[in-house]
Computed example of a mutant assay.
Amino acid sequence: MDHRDSGAVGRAETKAAREAERSEAAAAVWADVERERRARDERTARLRAQRLAREAAKAE
């Protein structure tokens, strides 16, 4: 009976380790998504400012 119990414990530990790895991978992916979103937003703001400056210069 102890053998079955240790097998169940081993499977539970393996499952917990897999879930932890998945969680870490998901966190890394979300960090990448967030980093890309911030970069896109910064590019958009920079390009918008350049466009507005060009339009203001033309209007003068």
Rank of each mutant, 00 (worst) to 15 (best):
residue 31 A to K: 13
residue 28 A to C: 04
residue 5 D to F: 12
residue 39 A to S: 05
residue 21 E to I: 11
residue 49 A to Y: 05
residue 55 E to H: 05
residue 29 V to C: 02
residue 16 A to Q: 12
residue 2 D to G: 14
residue 12 A to G: 01
residue 23 S to P: 02
residue 52 L to C: 06
residue 52 L to K: 10
residue 35 R to V: 07
residue 8 A to N: 12
residue 28 A to V: 10
residue 19 E to N: 14
residue 4 R to S: 07
residue 26 A to K: 13
residue 5 D to C: 12
residue 43 R to W: 00
residue 32 D to G: 06
residue 45 A to D: 01
residue 30 W to F: 04
residue 5 D to M: 14
residue 37 R to F: 00
residue 31 A to M: 05
residue 9 V to E: 04
residue 32 D to L: 13
residue 32 D to M: 11
residue 28 A to M: 06
residue 9 V to Q: 04
residue 46 R to L: 04
residue 11 R to N: 06
residue 21 E to A: 15
residue 33 V to H: 04
residue 19 E to K: 15
residue 7 G to M: 11
residue 47 L to K: 09
residue 12 A to I: 04
residue 31 A to P: 02
residue 49 A to K: 08
residue 19 E to A: 15
residue 28 A to W: 03
residue 12 A to D: 02
residue 44 T to P: 00
residue 11 R to G: 03
residue 10 G to I: 01
residue 50 Q to D: 08
residue 52 L to A: 12
residue 43 R to Y: 00
residue 34 E to Y: 06
residue 23 S to A: 14
residue 48 R to K: 13
residue 4 R to L: 07
residue 27 A to T: 15
residue 58 K to N: 05
residue 18 R to S: 15
residue 13 E to T: 11
residue 4 R to E: 03
residue 8 A to L: 13
residue 50 Q to G: 02
residue 25 A to I: 12
residue 42 E to R: 02
residue 6 S to P: 06
residue 39 A to W: 00
residue 28 A to K: 11
residue 32 D to I: 03
residue 11 R to C: 01
residue 42 E to N: 01
residue 21 E to T: 14
residue 53 A to D: 11
residue 9 V to S: 03
residue 1 M to I: 05
residue 47 L to I: 07
residue 46 R to Q: 05
residue 59 A to G: 09
residue 5 D to E: 15
residue 10 G to D: 03
residue 49 A to G: 02
residue 14 T to D: 09
residue 20 A to I: 12
residue 1 M to D: 05
residue 59 A to F: 11
residue 55 E to A: 11
residue 36 E to P: 01
residue 52 L to N: 12
residue 10 G to L: 04
residue 33 V to F: 03
residue 46 R to W: 05
residue 18 R to V: 15
residue 21 E to W: 14
residue 13 E to F: 10
residue 59 A to W: 12
residue 44 T to D: 01
residue 55 E to R: 13
residue 59 A to L: 14
residue 36 E to F: 08
residue 6 S to W: 11
residue 15 K to D: 07
residue 28 A to L: 08
residue 28 A to S: 10
residue 3 H to C: 10
residue 48 R to S: 05
residue 45 A to M: 00
residue 45 A to S: 01
residue 38 R to P: 00
residue 36 E to V: 09
residue 50 Q to S: 06
residue 13 E to A: 10
residue 12 A to Q: 03
residue 56 A to G: 07
